[in-house]
Computed example of a mutant assay.
Amino acid sequence: MIFHIIAFAAGFILDLIFGDPVYPFHPVRLIGKLISLAEKIFYHKGDSPAKKRFFGILTVFFVCAVTEAIVLSVLISFFYINKIAFCMVEALFTWQILAAKSLKDESMKVYRALEEGTLDDARHAVSMIVGRDTENLTDEGVTKAAVETVAESTNDGVIAPMIFCALGGPVLGFFYKCINTMDSMIGYKNDRYIDFGRAAARTDDFVNFLPSRLAALLMMVACFFGGKDFSFKNAIHIFRRDRLNHQSPNSAQTESVVAGALGLQLAGPLYYEGKLEEKPYIGDFVRAPEHKDIKRSVFLMYTAAILCQIICIGILFFC
């Protein structure tokens, strides 16, 4: 257990210092290629909706099974070679599962573009982290998009994978990344994926159900460490009212906390591939968004991550 705790903490520290490493054989990038391969094997345009759903289930099992087999093989091999080497490999894997610093870096690129560059620069920067159309976003629209991304990704990129790594090391950590990556690639409600991607989307909803709510709770607590810029009381109010204002049962959990804590109105109607999608608002319009709200959302994300790390290590140490 002590080796797991050391590796778990070391992976988090490596992420805080260096961010998610970028190289061709990054495990999550390889998982993405595996998902693309599975889609080529299992997706057939002419299949009936029932067949597409069946092959979508097979895709989830195939991607998870292959990934878990490889991760287990690597970890078991190093465990029998040397426990210190095993600990190092677990730390390196954990590092590549978490994405706190990368989330901060990408959102701060948007902040700097808003502060120092042109609106087009800011639109381009935010287009790297959101799926919505960005070419016509206003200054406030760009700011809101960055804040929403940090809020939602606090769970997907930080808290949920951290919890899974704490519970089962990289084995469960990469299981989570498989599900989350599949959802981001094939979990859409469009003509191609409405049936084929249903299993991936539903599984992602399931594995994120508890972590997203814990992430929201941690972000509420984080308000206490931020001073007058954050409203703990309003974060609770908006969370209780708007936490389900999203197609996903999980996405608005953290977003509602951030909206309430900062006094912003987030979400609402958005354009995707030129089509307007009517979405409910999250939060009340207490004030207009300002560039520093991006920094404030990052503060909530980082504080929640540190709190989650402390809690996980405490539980692992005393259990």
Rank of each mutant, 00 (worst) to 15 (best):
F164V: 10
L307A: 05
I35S: 07
N190Q: 09
R240N: 13
E39I: 00
R287D: 07
V158Q: 03
S248E: 13
R243C: 12
V60E: 00
F79V: 00
F174E: 12
Y111Q: 14
V298H: 01
G197L: 05
G268M: 11
G32F: 07
A199Y: 07
A7P: 08
G131V: 02
L58T: 00
G197V: 00
V286D: 11
L244K: 13
A10H: 04
I31Q: 01
S102W: 03
A305I: 03
D139M: 14
L58Q: 11
H246K: 02
A7Q: 08
A146M: 12
D293Y: 13
A160T: 01
I31W: 04
K40C: 01
F62R: 09
V28K: 01
Y188N: 10
A288V: 12
N190F: 02
P27Y: 06
H26I: 14
Y302A: 05
P24I: 08
L214Q: 03
I41A: 01
F318K: 05
H237Y: 14
E106K: 12
K177T: 10
H291R: 15
V207M: 01
E90R: 05
I313R: 02
G187E: 06
C64M: 12
G157K: 04
F61M: 14
K101L: 10
Y302W: 11
D195H: 14
T118Y: 07
Y80D: 03
G197A: 06
